[in-house]
């Protein structure tokens, strides 16, 4: 199944791309996708204390099962406002 991955802020700079589409086995969970990203894009973890994930525009809540065409976002600590 295809999962859309999007990067934002400094994580996007470290990843070197805005996003990618991963083809992973049906029944995969968020932790499986995270392991793939750790291997494919180790640079986004380097020198970073915290990294955040969202699934379909909601912060990840545990090791959720992924579904076809889900959107996973990866980003650093937020810094909006003023």
């Amino acid at each position: 199944m295809k999962i859309q991955v999007r990067f934002f802020g400094s994580v996007k700079d470290d990843a070197g791309i805005e996003g990618l589409v991963l083809d992973i086995p049906q029944g995969s969970h968020f932790s499986d996708l995270k392991e793939i990203l750790k291997k494919d894009k180790p640079s986004i973890w380097q020198g970073r204390r915290q990294i955040f994930f969202a699934l379909n525009q909601n912060y990840i809540n545990g090791d959720q099962e992924l579904r076809e065409n889900d959107e996973v976002a990866v980003f650093p600590m937020v810094s909006g406002g003023c």
Partner: peptide, 25 residues
Amino acid sequence: IDRIKIETPIWKKDIAVTGEATWRD
């Protein structure tokens, strides 16, 4: 505004007078 600052996925980058750009995260 307090909650937006800690939850809402928005990021800012300082653009210094030197031209250097630094993400604030």
